[in-house]
């Protein structure tokens, strides 16, 4: 042992030399990448107007130059202040009643919002699941199949829901169906991508076992791949349902059903307290669904071992 320490062999010396060189290279790379990132951040901030200066009127009536963010923050406060309703302890019930004065309509629209999200998630799950196998590098039966299904998923998830919604409202008319389709297409694109990445990380040996026993490509997927990815599929889908509830509460903005249409009316008519009421409703719903789906996800991941 001591002899080895006293006289390192040539292999050890070679390693020390290579290691030092490797470390030096890594340090240079780190510095270059960090500088590039800082530059890129500053440039994009400048481009999007973060460093702009604007004129403000001070309390004594004089004009002065201020950085746009400092000048804007008070206005944000003003806007929020406008949306806060007047609620007094003595007249609590009637004040709350006044704040949520359209609660019958909002309750119906809330149910519609959640149903749109649910339906869109189910349809997106089906589409994404089917496409995730041909879109996985290790499972695709042919290169052109991989290419086609990947491009399809990319288009489906790159176009924002609101754009799909506009198109579908034009095609199928105003109403929740356009919203369901819009969110479903986007969901299929996102989930298909996520599932296909899960697919690319699976153990291929079970598939080989099925193939060697005379199983077709579909058999390999059904018996070899699906049992491996099922817990992840369920987990991602529930997560997506939460995201879709948020999406479906906006989509009504263009007439595709749900609470969004009320948001639009409130903004257009300057009904500031309605906005805050709607915000409270959406926030409470999303929180509830987050909580519920997280519970469910953990149960399923626990159960997953027997699936």
């Amino acid at each position: 042992m001591t002899a080895a320490l006293a006289a390192p062999s040539s292999a050890v010396l070679a390693f020390e030399r290579d290691f030092a060189a490797h470390r030096a290279r890594a340090r240079v790379t780190f510095v270059i990448v960090s500088l590039a990132l800082v530059m890129a951040t500053l440039l994009t901030a400048d481009f999007s107007g973060f460093f702009r200066v604007t004129q403000v009127t001070l309390a004594d009536g004089t004009r002065a130059e201020r950085w746009v963010i400092l000048a804007g923050i008070p206005k944000l406060g003003d806007y929020i202040a406008k949306t806060i309703p007047e609620i007094r302890w003595s007249t609590l019930v009637s004040d709350l009643g006044e704040w949520f004065w359209r609660w019958r309509i909002w309750a119906d629209l809330l149910v519609e919002t959640v149903l749109i999200a649910f339906m869109a998630t189910v349809m997106g799950l089906a589409g994404g699941f089917v496409l995730s196998f041909p879109a996985a590098r290790n499972l695709a039966p042919a290169r052109w199949v991989l290419w086609l299904s990947r491009r399809y998923l990319e288009i489906a998830r790159t176009v924002p829901e609101i754009v799909f919604a506009l198109i579908f409202v034009f095609c199928f008319g105003v109403g929740p169906m356009a919203g369901v389709l819009a969110i479903a297409v986007h969901t299929a694109g996102s989930l298909g991508k996520l599932y296909s990445e899960v697919n690319e990380n699976i153990d291929m040996r079970p598939l080989e076992g099925v193939k060697a026993a005379g199983g077709s490509w579909f058999d390999q997927i059904r018996y070899g791949a699906v049992p491996q990815i099922l817990p992840n599929v369920i987990s991602y889908t529930l997560l997506r349902f939460e995201i879709n509830v948020r999406a479906s509460s906006i989509i009504g903005y263009v007439g595709a059903g749900g609470l969004g249409q009320e948001l639009r009316t409130a903004v257009a008519l300057g009904e500031h307290t309605d906005l805050s009421a709607l915000f409270v409703i959406i926030f409470a719903t999303v929180m509830l669904i987050d909580w519920g789906s997280e519970k469910l996800r953990h149960r399923i991941i626990g159960l997953g071992r027997t699936l």
Binding site: R205, P206, G209, V210, A212, A213, G215, D219, Y223, P227
Partner: peptide, 26 residues
């Protein structure tokens, strides 16, 4: 011509019976 592998190549998440029935898929 059935094949047996060093790493068994079973579907670990499925039950034993279903794994055996995979042999009938052809």
């Amino acid at each position: 011509c059935a094949m047996i592998f060093q790493q068994f190549n079973l579907v670990e998440r499925l039950d034993v019976l279903t794994n055996v029935l995979v042999g009938r898929l052809a």
